[in-house]
Structures are given as C-alpha cells and as structure tokens.
Amino acid sequence: MNLYSKIIGTGSHLPPRRVTNEELAKQLAEKGIETSDEWIVSRSGISARHYAEPHVQSSDLAVEAARRALEMAALDANDIDLIILATSTPDHFGGFPSTACVVQRKLGITNECAAVDVQAVCSGFVYAVSVADSFIKSGAHKNVLIIGAEVFSRILNFEDRTTCVLFGDGAGAVVMTASREPGVLATKLHADGSHADILCIPGRVSGGVVEGSAFLHMDGQAVFKLAVSVLDKVANEVLRIAGMAASEVNWLIPHQANIRIMQGTAKKLGLPLEKMVVTVDQHGNTSAASIPLALDKAMRDGRIKPGQNVLMEGVGGGFTWGAVLAQM
C-alpha cells in the first residue's frame, strides 16, 4: 500500500491589533504621505491587517498557531518528531538559533526532535510542506509540525506607501502525519535567482552595522507579471503529476498577496472565484503565514470537508514558487 503524508490538524493566530486602511492612512498622513482606503483596496483588495506588539516575536505567534493545530490533530506536542518553520522574520538576527528551535522550547517539547527554519519568503509554507511530505514518505519522520510565521511589520518602510500598506503579521500551522489514506497527492517547487532584486531586503550587515536598506523593497509591476505566469504553470504541473484535472479541485488557496493576482490565477485554471479561499482582505500579505492562515479559516468554518482536493500555491522573493495538491 502507498504511504502518504496527510494533514490532520490546522491552526492559526493573528495578533489582536487590527489596523484598517483608514487608520493606516491617518498614520501615514501625519508623515505627509497620502493614501486612502479606496487606493489600497483598488490595487490590492486589502482592507485591514494585523500588527504584532513590539514585544511579540514570530515564535510567539507560531506557538499559538501550533497549539491549535495540535489540538485539532489530537496529538501531544511530544508526538512531533520534526518541526519545519517558514519565516523571513526570525526571532534572532541571522536566523540563529532557528525560530523552529525557539518554538520547540516554548511548546515544551523534550523529545529532542529535529527543528529547522525554511527561508523561501512567501513560498515558504509550500516549500516546508513539500519537504515534510518527502520526509514522511521516506519513513524518516511520522508526525511533522509545519508553521508559517511572520512579523513583517518590523521590516516595512512606512514612508513607502507602495509596500507598507500591503503586509501584515500572523501565523498558521498544520500537522502532517504518515497515513495509508490519500493526503498530499503532488508537490512541485521552483526558483529563479535571476529575479532576486525585484522583491528583497537589499541591505546586509558588516561588523554589526547595516549597510544599505533594511526595509523590504518590491518592484510591484515586475512581481505581478511574474507571479501570474509562474502560478498558473506550477498549478498545472502538480495537476499533471497527480493525474487530475483542474475541475477536480474543490478549493484553491493561493498565497494571499494581491486579489488581482489571485483572481488571475483562478481564471487561468478555469476555476470559479467561489472555489478560491480569500483572506487577503482582512489579513493583508502575511508572507509564509498566508496559506496556512487561509487553510485554517476554511477548515474551521466548514468550507473544506474531508475528502476534498485543495490546491495551495505560493510565490515569493528569491524568486521562489511552488504548489501542493492535497486531499483533506
């Protein structure tokens, strides 16, 4: 019999502070920067986002999401034998110790399970699920905790309205386990480093001093054009691998970056917009956290039902992109 990796639990967490477009526009106006709810919504579909308080780290958001995923999976934290955490905003400078190790400690896991961070920016969750799928199918691990957690508000330039209005903070998590029942049906990952400069943090550290900008930089038009193209291609790739047609997809969960990119992807796949899970309007772009946040919302409100096929895909800085097709 085939061995699958199956998602058996989902969880998510958003910081309590919700910032509407109107509130953000007022804050920016105090700096002499003009924007409005209409301007933000028309370009991105975003109406609000959540910001973490200064003392809250990615690991704090991750732990809350992980606890909810473990509860749904009916597993104890010490049942986990691998943690993979996707983030571009790690707790510690340079990413070490890894935020995954910090989460392991905060969850009280004492079984010395492996723990590692994955850096693929907004594609991070898809990358992490693909890695977990391979580990589980190889027999190396049985119960894997995958988390996407971000505090992007820390790396935004609030004097650049083209980027600061787009992003938010949050965390989403899933528990994957070895199963004889169909679960992850196909995955596909890609990267093209020749596009690294269109979405990046261009600064670097030397001698303890930041050289260049430590804020997120994005060429919006270039990202939009590339994202629509690669998301369509990778979605069709995983469908071919799984031997399925797009019409057999019950739910599409794209990276929640921009409603126009998301709608364009669904249109190219021939999927009605009613089959697409949308949270970008209330969460903004939460990078690696966006797909698991949306997945958890749709699981808990009853939209996604057992046996349904869910197509998840992401694209992010690097340039990275990938997709996962899973039966729930």
Rank of each mutant, 00 (worst) to 15 (best):
R68K: 08
A69S: 12
A69Y: 06
L70I: 15
L70M: 15
L70H: 10
E71R: 12
E71V: 15
M72T: 15
A73Q: 13
A73V: 15
A73G: 15
A73M: 15
A74C: 14
A74L: 15
L75M: 14
L75S: 07
A77Y: 02
A77T: 11
N78S: 10
N78L: 08
D79F: 09
I80V: 14
D81T: 12
D81M: 08
I83S: 00
I83F: 00
I83K: 00
I84K: 05
I84F: 10
I84A: 07
L85S: 03
L85A: 05
L85F: 04
A86M: 10
T87D: 08
T87W: 03
T87Q: 07
S88C: 10
S88I: 11
S88Y: 06
T89L: 07
T89D: 07
T89N: 06
P90T: 03
P90A: 01
D91H: 02
D91C: 04
D91T: 02
H92A: 07
H92V: 05
F93V: 11
F93I: 11
F93Y: 06
F93K: 09
G94P: 02
G95H: 02
G95W: 01
F96E: 13
P97W: 02
S98Y: 03
T99I: 04
T99D: 05
A100K: 00
A100Q: 01
A100F: 00
A100D: 01
A100H: 00
C101H: 07
C101L: 13
C101W: 03
V102F: 02
V102W: 00
V102G: 02
V103H: 00
V103K: 00
V103A: 00
Q104S: 07
R105S: 14
K106P: 02
K106Y: 05
K106C: 05
K106V: 01
L107V: 09
G108Y: 09
G108D: 11
I109H: 04
I109L: 10
T110C: 05
E112T: 14
E112K: 12
C113I: 13
C113L: 13
C113R: 05
C113N: 08
C113M: 13
C113W: 09
A114P: 07
A114Q: 11
A115F: 03
A115R: 03
